[in-house]
Design a protein around this nucleic acid. Sequence first.
DNA 1: TATTGTTATACTCTATAACTATA
DNA 2: TATAGTTATAGAGTATAACAATA
Lengths: 163, 163
Amino acid sequence: MLYPDVMPRSNRPARIGFLLTQLGTFAAEAFAATTRELGITPVEAGVLRILGRRLGINQRELAEKLGTAQSRVVALIDNLETAGYATRSRSTVDRRIQLLELTDAGRTMLARLRNAAEAQEAEITDGLDTGERTLLHQLLLKLSSARGLDPDVHPGYRQLSDH
Amino acid sequence: MLYPDVMPRSNRPARIGFLLTQLGTFAAEAFAATTRELGITPVEAGVLRILGRRLGINQRELAEKLGTAQSRVVALIDNLETAGYATRSRSTVDRRIQLLELTDAGRTMLARLRNAAEAQEAEITDGLDTGERTLLHQLLLKLSSARGLDPDVHPGYRQLSDH
DNA sequence: TATTGTTATACTCTATAACTATA
DNA sequence: TATAGTTATAGAGTATAACAATA
């Protein structure tokens, strides 16, 4: 055991789980500030990313990927369509299906988001030197892959209170 | 620049910010599952932790520490009081102030939460060897302290955004 | 009858503002 | 007049269920 009973619990250093939650929230908030400046929400940014990677996805598939209800996807796509970033089009093969695509403006926004997120890396890892950053990156990648987490859609979308 | 334009953006490895958000969500979810089993929410667990460390804190101070409105603290303490984990008592010095304390049951719950969270460390860091865990722990501590994050305040299970 | 998408509705979480009781 | 706490209310976000169109 790392911290024997002799050491008061209140003085024990924060655990890895705690630190990951804390720093994850910090990173998420920083990203949210960025998307806010660009006029969209983090969730919408996530949808744009998925649309950019999976061409011709439909709303049911998107809902499944996000782990959310189809009714929520309706509202999400409504917003992105109104903003001019995405389009719906009925499949000619099966007219129940709405095929989703990015517009040119959507692709531009996606590129902006990626640039902003990349620029934010420095801010988030400020306080670490280059070697430490590389090391941290490798450890987090290892952990993420060991957990089987999907680099395409991350679990920030899942409803925590439902479990 | 780490990833030159030659490399397609879609193939670039996930950034540290993304990984922190992803793993932070995973850790928060695991913790939420634990608190659910114990019959409380992650936010309430966070309040118990603060009450356990700062004796005689009042509601305004707690609101400030949580970064939330005083009105929300009212509801939070209502629940913890009903559950028998915390008590309010008017200060005799200034009768506007409600002094908050843990009950014995509250301290017992706090101990249960700490044990459960400690047991969860292994689950969260599965895939890393002992040396890697120590290294990761140190890097995260350094980052958290560089960000000025409060080691007492767990961000709860707020919805984390996507990167 | 089953599936895709939509609408209607309700519930949870949270913040803002008005209010009370003390100072 | 200012402060600590409370209550009232509203808004955002999300889920469930009923419904429409299509298969």
